[in-house]
Design a protein around this nucleic acid. Structure first.
Lengths: 132, 132
DNA sequence: GTAGCCCCTGTAGCTACTACAGGATCAAGA
DNA sequence: TCTTGATCCTGTAGTAGCTACAGGGGCTAC
C-alpha cells in the first residue's frame, strides 16, 4: 500500500496540514518519498495516525499521546514502568468514562422530559459539577 | 457564598487566568465586584466553571460547551431542537465511551501480560485504529 | 500547451489557554 | 506606623495544537 498525503488525510479524517505538523514534531515518522518528492505513506502511518486522531478526540494531549506511543514503540521501558504507565492511563480513562456516562444520562433525561411545548430545566450542569 | 478569583480557581482546579479568559469570551458571566473592585463569585459560577472544566477534559471544544450551556440556560430553543441537540450530543458521547473502553481494555491487557522481564507488544494502537 | 488537480515549502493566523509586568489592596507582624 | 507578603487588578505577550494561505512544481487529460 502507498498513499499520498491527500489520500491519507481523507481516510483518517485528519486535516492535510495537520499531518505535516505531526511529522514536524516527530509524532508521525517521516514517510519515504517517491521520485518526484511526494510523501508516500504506508499501512503503519495510516494505523498510527488513526490512533492519534482518536486519542485527541478523547481529550488526550499530544504529550500523553506521545507517552502512549512510546509504550507501543517499546521504548526503553522496564516491565514495571509499563505496568505503572498503563494502569495510570487506564485509571484516567475510567474517570473520563464515568464523566461521560453522567453527561449522557443527563442529556437523555432532558430529552425524555422534553415534550410538546415544554422545555425542561436541563440537569446536565448540576449532574456534572458535583464539586467533591 | 462569595469567592474571590483565587479561591474559585483552587476549588475548580482551573488556572486563575483561564477564569478571566472565560469571562472575556462570555462563557462565564461577569461576577459582581466588591467595593475594592475584586471579583466576587457565587455558587452558580462555581457550578458552571466546574462543568466547563469537566467538559473540556472530555474533549468538547469551547464552542460545544457553549452549545450545551445554551441548552442549560434555556435559550430560545423549541422542544424539538432541544431533543435533537441533546440526542446528538448523547450519540457523540457514546462513541467516546466506546473508544475509551477499547483503549482501557488494551492497556489492561498489556499490563496483565507484562511480567518478569517480558514487555509485551502493546495492542492499543491496533485496537483503536480500525479504519472503518 | 494549457487547465485542473494535487503535491511541495515556508510562514502567518487561529483557538484555548498561560504567563508576566506593573501596580493596587489588605491583613499581620516588627 | 511602616513594611512584608499574599492576593487582587489590567493589559499584553507567549505557547500548544492546529489550520490556512502564498507561491511554485508535477502529472494527466483534453
Amino acid at each position: 500500500m502507498s498513499l499520498r498525503r491527500g489520500e491519507l488525510a481523507k481516510r483518517t479524517g485528519c486535516n492535510i496540514e495537520t499531518i505535516r505538523y505531526y511529522e514536524r514534531i516527530g509524532l508521525l515518522p517521516d514517510p519515504p518519498r517517491s521520485e518526484n518528492g511526494f510523501r508516500s505513506y504506508e499501512e503503519r502511518h495510516l494505523t498510527r495516525l488513526t490512533f492519534i486522531r482518536r486519542a485527541r478526540e478523547l481529550g488526550f494531549t499530544l504529550e500523553e499521546v506521545q507517552d502512549l506511543l512510546r509504550l507501543v514503540d517499546g521504548g526503553n521501558y522496564t516491565c514495571a514502568q509499563v505496568q505503572e504507565l498503563a494502569l495510570r492511563h487506564a485509571d484516567e480513562i475510567q474517570r473520563k468514562i464515568d464523566d461521560l456516562h453522567r453527561m449522557q444520562h443527563a442529556l437523555k433525561e432532558m430529552s425524555a422530559q422534553c415534550r410538546g411545548e415544554e422545555v425542561p430545566k436541563c440537569p446536565i450542569v448540576e449532574i456534572l459539577s458535583e464539586t467533591s
